[in-house]
Computed example of a mutant assay.
Amino acid sequence: MAIVKTERHPDLPPPTSQTGVIGWMRENLFSSPLNIVLTLVAGYVSWVALSSLISYAFIDANFAGTTREDCTGSGACWVFIKMRFGQIMYGFYPEEERWRVDVGYVLVAIGLFFVLSDVVKDKKWPAIYLFGFVPVACYILFSGGYFGLEHVETAQWGGLFLTLVLASVSIFVSLPLGIVLALGRRSSMPVVRMICVGFIEFVRGVPLITVLFMASVMLPLFLPEGVNFDKLVRALVGMSLFASAYMAEVVRGGLQAIPKGQMEAAKSLGLGYWQAMGFIILPQALKISIPSIVNTFIGLFKDTTLVLIIGLLDLLSIVKSGTTDKEWIGMAQEGYIFVAAVFFVFCFGMSRYSIWLENKLHTGHKR
């Protein structure tokens, strides 16, 4: 009598050599003789470079002390960063008033958390808080002169604090302005299109240093007598306008990638131009443009170092000026490493959030 098995045998798990870390390494690092050689060479070079860097920055580094004479080892002298940390973070902001800057950081962090994360599904009130309440509250906190707060001149702002102010304001202003310019460049009205094209091409044809120089030095010459703007405000206007021109081209590229049938379908449903653009076209265009938009933001964040030309001491400038102090001459290497690490953290954070947002919205359109 024959015995026939009717039950399905459970599927066996894939071999360990094809999954997990081992599988990834076999597929990406050791898939061929050439890849094996390249992996070994790259690993050796990375080991030599990282071991020297780790030894210099941590193992042989000096962390304790208050003066340069306390740095006796062959590694980095982080005593310089420790003693100058307050100035590097806040510039020349009064020490007893720095709590106002910290409160502003907390307000911004809360707004960004609820707007950029999925904790709250309805973004209306978090957006109103971040773009409406926070700028006013931060202006009152940072500048003072209201509610009994001591007024602090913008000339005393500096360090990482000034860098974040320049970057955040320029980013938040350049995106909506860039969208308006992109729509204007694609407008059917000749005058509007010519104005937008002329602005975009003119700004993209000159370096940011020129724009900052014009905004800080030349602009006051064209203003009526007695009318003047703060140097920081002029820098913010110049950087925002400069970034908006590049942002306009990024958004325009996204708009051109949307098929014309999307607009035609919106019109067939009875939607007007602005309704179709706001609810159908722009969301798709901005989703496609996420990598380029974040790339522009990262470039703008790094370009804040150029404000030194108009006398503003950002993070890099304040560290560089600290190394000219006779007590800390020769500490430029430690200062530049610290600045590079700070910029890397912010830029890498924006990059990782961009990747997360792309995966969430399926921006890659993988097939």
Rank of each mutant, 00 (worst) to 15 (best):
V197I: 00
L177I: 03
G299R: 02
V165F: 12
L308C: 06
R84H: 12
Q256L: 12
W274T: 08
P14V: 11
K326E: 12
Y273Q: 05
L107S: 07
I310N: 09
R252H: 09
L116A: 14
V134W: 03
S51R: 07
L175W: 10
V251Q: 02
A215L: 04
S244A: 15
R186Y: 04
F92I: 09
A243L: 05
L141H: 08
V169L: 03
S187E: 06
I309P: 02
E97L: 15
L232S: 06
A127S: 14
E225V: 09
I81E: 07
Y93T: 04
V79E: 07
M89E: 08
P10H: 14
P33H: 00
T304E: 05
L219I: 11
L53Q: 02
K82N: 11
A137Y: 10
V203M: 12
L269K: 09
Y44V: 15
I22N: 10
S268W: 00
F92E: 15
I171A: 13
I200N: 02
E153L: 11
V173I: 15
P207G: 01
A266E: 02
L315D: 06
I258R: 01
L232A: 07
Y246R: 05
K326Q: 14
V294E: 00
F114V: 02
S31D: 14
Y353P: 02
R84L: 11
F242R: 03
L29M: 09
I355G: 11
K260V: 07
N359H: 15
A137C: 05
E96V: 11
L300S: 10
C77T: 03
P15I: 00
V21L: 15
H365F: 11
I22K: 12
F346W: 09
K326A: 12
T305V: 12
W328D: 05
L183K: 13
Y336Q: 07
I200W: 00
D122S: 10
W157E: 02
V152E: 05
G270L: 03
T210S: 15
L223N: 07
L223E: 02
